[in-house]
Amino acid sequence: MGRITLDKVAKRFGDVEVIPPLDLTIEDGEFVVFVGPSGCGKSTLLRLIAGLEDVSAGQIRINGNDATMTPPAKRGLAMVFQSYALYPHMSVRKNIAFPLKMAGVDQATQDAKIEAAAKALNLTAYLDRRPGQLSGGQRQRVAIGRAIVREPDAFLFDEPLSNLDAALRVNMRLEISELHNTLKTTMIYVTHDQVEAMTMADKIVVLQAGNIEQVGSPLELYHKPRNAFVAGFIGSPKMNLVPGSTANDSSHTFGIRPEHLDISDSEGLWHGVVGVSEHLGSDTFLRVTVPGMEEHLTVRANGDIPLRHGDKVYLTPQADKVHRFDSKGLRIE
C-alpha cells in the first residue's frame, strides 16, 4: 500500500513561499514524476513527503493516516538521493543492511534480503567492496538496493540519474521502470528532464514556481497541455510558440510542435530560410528563420530530407494539431 495525499500543503522559507498551498493525490502503485525547471520546488515537495522538511501548512496523509508530523524514519518511505548518499565507510553489504539493522531485523532475514536485492541488481560480486570502489551506475544500484530491502510503502527518487553519463542514464531509466513493473510499489520521481518524465511516468506533475501547472499522463500532457508553460516544457524539441497575429489567428499565443509542421518548396502559411539543420539519420531538425518572427521555428522532418543551410522553405501547421493559448497563457479549446 502506498497512497499519498497532500492536502493544501504549503512551504515557506522565512518570508519566501516556495510552495503555495497545493493538493495532490498519488495512488497506490503509481509511478509519479515531478518535473519542472530548477528551482520550481519539485525537490522541496519530495522532501516534504519524505519528512526531511516540515510543511508550513496543510496535511500529508500516507495510506489515509496523518503523517504530517511523523519523523522521516517512521513514514515507511525509502529515498534514493541524487548523490546516492551511500555510507562511504561501510561495504556494499553493510550499506544495504543498514535500514534492516535499524529496523532490528534478525541476521538470517537480513542476509536473505541482501542476497535477493543484490541478485536483482547485479551486485552480488560487489557486496564486499566499499562504495568508493564502484562506478557511478553501481553506486546508484546500491542506493536502490538499500531502498528496496526496506520494502517501503513508496520509493522517493531525487534526480537519481543526473550524475550519470548519457548512455548509463538510458540504461538506469529502463532498470528503474523495470523495477516498478516488478515491485508495483508507488514511486515518486523528481527530475528536471522531461524525457525521463515522459518515458517513465504513469502520471506527470509539472511544477513551476511551486505551483502545479498540470497533472496527467504523459500523452495527455503532450496532446493537451493546459497552458503555454506545459506546452513549452513537455516535448522535445520544444513546441514552437508564436504570437497569434503572425499566424493569422485570433489567439494570443499560437503553438505548433516541430513534428506537426508540413514542409513544401512551393506554398504554405509561412515562408522562411533554413538556418542550422541537424541530420540525425532518423529525423532532421531544421531551424527556420521566418521574416517578421522574433524566434526561429523548429521543424522536425524525415531523415532523408535534402534541405541545407540557406534553402528557402514554406511551412504549414497541421490544422488539427494546433494549440491555442489566451493572454493568460491558458489553453483555448
Binding site: A50, L52, A73, K74, A78, F81, L86, F98, M102, R146
Partner: peptide, 22 residues
C-alpha cells in the same frame, strides 16, 4: 554531505544512530 545523514534518517536511524553509526 548532509544527504548522507538524511539517507540514514530515511533508513530509519534515530538521531543517536545517525551520529553513532554514520
Amino acid at each position: 554531505p548532509g544527504e548522507i545523514l538524511e539517507a540514514a534518517r530515511m533508513d530509519g536511524a534515530s538521531l543517536k544512530d545517525e551520529i553513532l553509526y554514520v
